[in-house]
Amino acid sequence: MTAIVNEFTKMRGLRLWPLLVAMVLVVFGGTALGIMSDPEFDPGAPGAWNHPLMGAAMALTMFSPLFVAVLASRLVDAEHLANGWLFSATTELPAGRLCRAKVVALGILLVATTGTGYLAVPTLGSLVGIEVPFPLGRWLGYGCCAMVIAVALLALHVLIAARFEDQLVGLGIGVLGLLIAAASQFFPTWAGHLLPWSYYALIIPAGYTADALAELPLSYPSIAALGCVVTALFLAATGRLDRKEL
């Protein structure tokens, strides 16, 4: 617990709040675009909530991979610049445990930011006067799945940032992941399971089928499997770092 509190203390000096505010605004903007982009949008139509849901999902798909990469890079780079790995080791906090503390601290921040931005769906939907009942289950389902993917990517990027002192490596992978996430909706279903970024395509809550915006199923088993696999691999990798001498 002390290690996690220390990570939050480090964040205070990194000025992350503009990035967090920008992410929330991006999701609100994407949600608004999802509503306004269709000139035939009807607040009284049975599928009216598909528009803000799709807008929010597209915004998270397009920006979350890079957002996660920047967060991980900023916090881990502090250890490289100040020789923090060696200092932490002298205080009986090995590198693996330090990485786990970073993922927990950043994960809390990431979930809070994503959740705040995702409130755009009911907020903007209500403002434009959508009359049909709010799909609470589908809204929560997508939100939880998106957070699982984001935290999985966070664990990956913390390991990358810890491995390479040059943080351009992790940021470059984040940009590549953004492109993969954006293109993954055109992949076959089996290909969507190959890379963590492509899992965003498996949870798109709404999309156009036969020229009409319709509800799409969420692949809960696939997201659960991703979470379990990444957790196991992350614990194994950080366990190895704990045993590695600096």
Rank of each mutant, 00 (worst) to 15 (best):
A89D: 02
V26S: 13
I130A: 01
L16H: 04
L20Q: 08
D77H: 14
S184R: 09
I203W: 01
W139Y: 14
F87I: 12
G239N: 07
L60H: 07
R163A: 09
R74H: 10
F67V: 03
V24H: 01
T90R: 14
P205W: 02
Q167N: 11
L213I: 05
R74F: 09
P133L: 07
M58Y: 06
G96V: 02
F164T: 04
A45R: 02
L127V: 10
G30N: 06
V175G: 10
I35M: 03
E245C: 09
R163Q: 12
Y200Q: 09
T31K: 02
L53M: 12
T9A: 13
L202N: 03
A146V: 08
L218G: 08
L226W: 00
G107R: 00
G47E: 05
A112M: 12
L93I: 02
I204Q: 15
G125Y: 04
V21T: 12
K102W: 01
A232W: 06
N6V: 09
C228V: 09
L66H: 02
Q167A: 12
P18G: 10
A161L: 11
L233W: 13
L154G: 04
P65E: 03
D77C: 07
Y199D: 11
L93E: 00
L119S: 10
L75R: 00
C99P: 00
E131V: 11
E40Q: 14
W190K: 11
Y199W: 12
G177K: 01
V70L: 15
V151F: 04
I173H: 06
G239T: 06
A69K: 00
H51M: 10
L16I: 10
W17L: 10
A214Y: 11
V148R: 04
A232N: 10
I35E: 00
A162D: 09
E92A: 10
G55S: 07
A237D: 08
R15V: 15
N83C: 13
S73P: 08
M62G: 09
I203N: 00
T116Y: 04
T238D: 04
L93A: 05
F234R: 00
L60G: 07
V148S: 05
R163N: 07
